[in-house]
Amino acid sequence: MKAFIDKILIQPLREVFQKLSAFAPSLLTGIVVLAAGVVLAWLVKLLVVRIIRILKLDAAFARSGVTEALQKMAVKDTPAKLVGRMFYWLVVFIFFILALSVMRMPVIDELLEKFLLYLPNIFVALVVLAIGWFLGNFLGRAALIASVNAGMKAAGPLSKGIKGAVLLFAFVMAFEQLGIGRSTVIAAFAIVFGGAVLALALAFGLGGKDLARSFLEKRFKKSGESDRGDGLKHL
């Protein structure tokens, strides 16, 4: 009986204890690394927020429309705090990975390796999204100003359409970079974009043929004043 208990209970418990005592230093080191990471992350967050305030980047974010967009998404933090928080979690995450790696567990090592190889994709996708965001805003605003100056009634929708198209394009590129639903996303993008272009072509062709004719006539026919009764010479 004693041999039986020793075999099915004591022996395994001893093995568990041995493994735990072998693993404990690594675990302890991991916890220490993680704790150090949390402290460092907190310091990095403070530093980043301070730098953003010194460089007055909050005002720049407000001007570029980032703050407004965040508010629309119900994000209450200022962009400075948000960036600070992102850095905080980034440092915590890096130290978490370090902590896992010092524990030397084969499964985790393998997962870590895959994840580390995937990280550049996430970085590139984020960069693509950021560029898309700024480019979309810039081009949308340029289109808005140009169409307002041209007196186009649909200035607002046109501007939003251009901004949306650029953002959509950026999202598609980002998803493609991440390898998420690569073929589905591209196909969806092609369908949506192609559909939009076709719809616009049909709308212009059917609904705006008179407008197009008048535009072309104005453009290519020899005429006097282009605008009804306006002879102002601005210079």
């Binding site: 100056n149 009634k153 607002g156 306006d230």
Partner: peptide, 22 residues
């Protein structure tokens, strides 16, 4: 010099309406 007041005011109104956020 002929002046198209209506058109100028329309463009002003449209500009203020659309470009206010900017």
């Amino acid at each position: 010099i002929p002046v198209n007041l209506e058109k100028m005011i329309e463009k002003f109104q449209m500009g203020v309406r659309e470009l206010a956020p900017f």
